[in-house]
Design a binder for these strands. Structure first.
Lengths: 150, 150
DNA sequence: TATTGTTATACTCTATAACTATA
DNA sequence: TATAGTTATAGAGTATAACAATA
C-alpha cells in the first residue's frame, strides 16, 4: 500500500469514527427525549425555540419544508407546548413556547448536557486540543491549510 | 457563568460541531451516490458487500430488520447489482455483487475517498492528533480517564 | 408579483407479525 | 424448537403542489 493509499484508508477510518460518535450522540439525545415522551422531530423543534420565531425560520434551521413546520406546530400545540402568536407582518406566525414548553425545554437541555459524551470521555486538555480541529472540519475560521487540496 | 457551566456549554458546542461535520460527511456521500443514480439505503448495502454475505449479516451491519434486507436485496437484484446465491446451510442466501455491482461499488468508494473531508481539511499531523481523541470518544481502547465520570 | 402559512396527498425508509423451509 | 428469509401491512418522517391571505 502506497503512502497515498494509507492516507486515504486512515482518513476513511476517521470519518467512520466521527459518524459513529455523532450517531451515538444522537442516540443519547433520542433516549433523553423519549424519557419525557417526546418524538425526535418535536424535540428538535423545541430545543431550537429559544425565543418566539417565525415558522419560516424554524423551517430553515431544521432544513425542512414550511409545510412540515405546520405539521410540527400542530403537534406541539396539541401538547400545549407552543402557541402560534401573530407577527407584525400579518402573514407571519411566531411559534412561542408556553410555560409548559419552556419547562420541558429546560428539562431536556439539562439532561442532554449531563449525558454529553465529550464531557464524560475527554479531559479539559483534550477538549482544548479537539476544538480547533473540529472547527476546521466544520469549515469555520479561515478554511484550508496552504498545503490542502480544497 | 461558573467553571462548570462553561464546561457544559463548551462541551455542548463541540458535540454540535461533531454532529454537523458528520452530517456534512453524510451529505457528501449522498451526493456521490445520487450522482450514480443510487438511493442511500442501496448504496450503504453495496458498500458493505465486500464479499458475499448472508442476508442476516447484512441486517446486523445495517442495524435493521431481516425483512428490510429482503426489500433491499430485491431492489439491488432488479438493478442487476447483486445476486442471491445459495449458502451451505440451505436456509441461508448469500448476497453477492455482480460484475456491475462490483464496478459500481468501486466507483463509489473511490469517489467517496476523494471527497473525504478529513483528508482535505486537515494535515497529516492534525489527523494524528485527532485519531486518538476520536477513538476515545467512540469508546474504543481502555475507555475513560481516571478523573472521568463514566 | 412574491411570500407566509395551510391543506391534501404521496413518497421513502423501516418495522411488526405471520408464514415457509430448513435445521 | 429455533433460525433464515419472505410476504403483507403499517407507521413515522418528510416532501410536493395547489391554495389563501397578505405584502
Amino acid at each position: 500500500m502506497s503512502d497515498q493509499e494509507a492516507r486515504f484508508a486512515e482518513a476513511g477510518r476517521l470519518v467512520r469514527l466521527l459518524v459513529d460518535i455523532a450517531e451515538q450522540a444522537k442516540a443519547d439525545f433520542a433516549a433523553t427525549v423519549a424519557a419525557v415522551g417526546l418524538p425526535m422531530p418535536l424535540a428538535r423543534a423545541i430545543v431550537l425555540l429559544t425565543h418566539p420565531a417565525p415558522m419560516r425560520d424554524l423551517a430553515e434551521q431544521l432544513a425542512c419544508d414550511r409545510s412540515y413546520v405546520t405539521n410540527l406546530a400542530d403537534q406541539l400545540e396539541e401538547r400545549g407546548l407552543v402557541a402560534r402568536v401573530p407577527g407584525e407582518d400579518r402573514r407571519v406566525k411566531l411559534l412561542a413556547l408556553t410555560d409548559a414548553g419552556t419547562a420541558l425545554r429546560n428539562r431536556i437541555t439539562a439532561a442532554v448536557a449531563e449525558r454529553n459524551i465529550i464531557l464524560h470521555r475527554l479531559t479539559d486538555a483534550e477538549r482544548r486540543t479537539l476544538a480547533p480541529l473540529l472547527e476546521r472540519l466544520a469549515g469555520e475560521g479561515r478554511g484550508c491549510h496552504p498545503g490542502g487540496t480544497c
